[in-house]
Structures are given as C-alpha cells and as structure tokens.
Design a binder for these strands. Structure first.
Lengths: 168, 168
DNA sequence: ATTAATTTTCAGAAAATTTTGAAAATATAA
DNA sequence: TTATATTTTCAAAATTTTCTGAAAATTAAT
C-alpha cells in the first residue's frame, strides 16, 4: 500500500464510520479528505477527488462548517473559496460531542421533563411505574449531560490556559 | 395529557431519539413500548400497539434481543412468546454503549492500525503529516476505548458487589 | 401422523435519504 | 454597466433503508 492508496483507504473508512455515527457518508469523506490534505482545497478539487456533484459538495461543506470543524480560507488573487479542516483531533472530537449533545441529549431532557407533567392519579400503580421509568431516564440523561458539559468545560479551560500562556 | 397520551408521547419520542442514535425508529419504539409495559407483551400486542407488520416486529424484536436489552419470557400454558425489556436504565445504557463500542470504535482502531503500515518513505513531509494525523486519531480512539471499557468494567464490579451483598 | 398455532424469512413495495445537474443568485472583474 | 466566474438552490432522479405480507419453516397439541 503506497501513500495514495493509504489516503484513499482512510477516506473510505472515515465515510463508513461517519454513517454509523449518524453523519452522512459524503460529509465524512469530505472531512477526511480535508483532514489529510496538505493544503486547503476548493470545491472543484473536492468534487474531482471524491467524484461527487457540485451541489452535493456545496451542501456537505456547508454542513461541516456549521459543525465548526471546517473553515473557509480565502487566497489572495483567487476568486475561488478554499476549505480547510481543523487538524487537532481532540478539538474535532469536542466540537462533534458538543453538537451531538445539543442535537440529541438536550431534546431528551426537555421531552422527559414535559412528559412528567402528566395529569394522572399519582397513586395508581401503573402511573407510578411509568413515571418512575421516565424519571430514571431523566436522571441518567442529566448525568450524561453534566459529564459531557464538564468535559467540554474542562477542555475550554485547558485551551484558554494554553492560549493565555502563549500571550503572556 | 392523561396516562395513555403520555405513554404514546414517550414511545414517539424514543423513536425519534433512536434514529439520531443510529437505531432504527421501529426498534426504538418497540423498546419504549416494552420499557413502560407493566407486563411482557407478545408479537401481536406489539403489532397492534405500534401498527406495524409481523415481519417488522419480528425482525426488530430479534435485534433488541441481540443488543441484550430485551428478553423472551415464556408463559406456562401459552404457546405465544412474550417479550420484556430490561428496566434498569443504567444497565440499558451500559449495554448500548458496549454494543456501539464494539460496532463503531473497535473498527476505527483496527483500520487506523492497518493504514499505519503504509509502505512509503517515512521522511517525506507529506507522508509524515498523513501518518501523524492517523496516529492522532488512533491515540484518541484508544483513549475513548479505554475510558469506555473502564466505565463498563466499573459497572460490572459495582453490580457484582451489589449482588454479592444480597447473597452473603 | 395430522392438524393447528406460531414464528421466521425474504422478495418486492414503500418510504426516507442522498445526490445530481442545471438554472438562479451572487460576487468580482473589465 | 456588462460580462464572466463562482456559489447556491432545489426539483427530480438515484440510492439506501425500512416495511409489508404471504409463503415456508418450526413448534406443539390432538
């Protein structure tokens, strides 16, 4: 396996992992491509490398930017827009966790909250059991939420710390 | 919102969350239904409650059993098979994490391992950068893997401890 | 052994998601 | 302003995933 083949393999695999992580295949592949590209790439280069259409490329690049793991890079004297991925894997992972927490965990919390407002005789055994399950889930989700928030907070501090050191 | 409505709401929501967690909607809904059912249910009852076909029910029940969060319950004098969900949310979460770790994290680890065997001049700057990225990912995945394994192990011990106390 | 009940399988249908490609919108240069 | 390059949008097409339902297989009773 030479370098080009290894890169190809990497992009393919990242696409497969992406799918099982609820991220669409192409989005993950573009991310992989940018992650191992020595330079920022423009839309045409991405389309060429992955053999995808312009619309597809555009849409998924935008989504990667929304997730905060890819950014636009402008080159002086070139009208095309270039794109570069955040290369620090830890930062990438933190951003993804943050995004997924927001999209997946937070809704669970508010839904469970809302369901607990059920207007039913609290003494009824069936009602009790149901509310108990909902409460358990809520507790668990809160713990997970706190743990993640803590991790993200810690990382932020670590980052701030490092940054401050650089400028002091 | 009365009890029946609340239950309906719960099942619907669980289905939505499931999708974003890479679990199919019906599978998640069956799980939700069993989670709040006072008694084990049979296939017909599940089909009726969720308005789904027999094939669909059968397939997703089997998958829930594979994940280890639902089990068959046999009732004496009844030829039908009944199904019950694990009610301890913590256990459910642990099982799901274990399963996802196996299906998603472990493959990342082995693929990165394999890619690092690339046959390319290690002094070349491009090769170096590529291998560095792959190594970073591998390190991160290993950390995540260890953290999860630790959590699962801790839980196992906690469980064993609790169980032992009960019987001693 | 025969019959009846129940579960499993799986090809095709339906639904959901992703992708294309060309037209419209936007931005830059001449 | 006009022309040209580039990006964005979005309806329709392609693909992937999920679901149905009836036939086949299995299990248990008579």
């Amino acid at each position: 396996m030479n370098l080009a083949e290894a890169k190809q393999q990497f992009i393919q695999s990242w696409g497969v992992f992406g799918s099982s992580w609820g991220i669409n295949r192409t989005m993950a592949q573009i991310h992989a491509l940018l992650l191992i590209a020595p330079e920022a790439l423009n839309a045409d280069e991405i389309m060429e490398a992955l053999q995808i259409s312009r619309g597809n490329a555009n849409m998924n690049i935008r989504e990667l930017i929304n997730w905060g793991i890819v950014e636009k890079v402008l080159k002086p004297g070139d009208r095309k827009e270039y794109f570069a991925a955040e290369k620090d894997i830890w930062k990438v992972a933190m951003r993804i966790m943050k995004e997924r927490k927001k999209r997946e965990l937070d809704p669970v919390l508010s839904t469970m909250e809302q369901i607990r407002e059920v207007d039913a005789p609290k003494k009824d055994a069936e009602t009790k059991a149901f509310l108990d399950t909902v409460t358990q889930i809520q507790k668990f989700a809160k713990q997970a939420d706190n743990a993640l928030a803590g991790l993200l907070k810690a990382d932020e501090h670590w980052f701030t710390g490092t940054l401050l050191k650089l400028f002091k």
